[in-house]
Amino acid sequence: MAINQLYLNNSRQITTSFSEDFPGAILFDFFDESYFRRWQRTLHSVNYTKEKKHLTHSYAKAVTTLPDTLELRKFIVAITRKKMKRLSAEIIQFGWKDYTILNDTVNEKHHYDFIIDLDDFWDERSGGTIFYSDGTGNYVHIPARRNTITIVKRTKNLRQFVKYVNHRAGRKKRHLLFIRI
């Protein structure tokens, strides 16, 4: 098994836990440990390209196809109820001075975010934290924790940002894997 049995057995119930305030779920210890480590290894085998648009984001990105994703695909289909042939994902790497900001002009065409936290440890005092905002000043903070998947159903006003990474990060980088459906 690649995915924690608890989540596999209850995938349909996960969506029923979505609330109006935050239509999402945060699932800790999501992958089996050895499978998670396999994913972590991809961090070092991909090529990152730096992207900087001052008004929207600064980070390095790698587009990747995921290894052995049948089980994950089934899980995602159970959550989203959308058919898909293959999964592609982006690994976003955040280092000192990187960020994304809320941007009203971004036309989000996808309906779900699946975000996998790939680092063994990330100190949130360095920034780099994911937030969701509903546009009324309410923020939901996604805790940084290894092997966690955050599932968010995107609604009209729900926007995401990753807080500026400050100098306390030093040379450390944060890695988040985004699957957008």
Binding site: H54, L55, Y99, I101, G127, Y164, N166, H167, R168
Partner: peptide, 8 residues
């Protein structure tokens, strides 16, 4: 320390 204001 660590405070900032991004471009605008």
């Amino acid at each position: 320390n660590t405070h900032y204001l991004l471009p605008h």
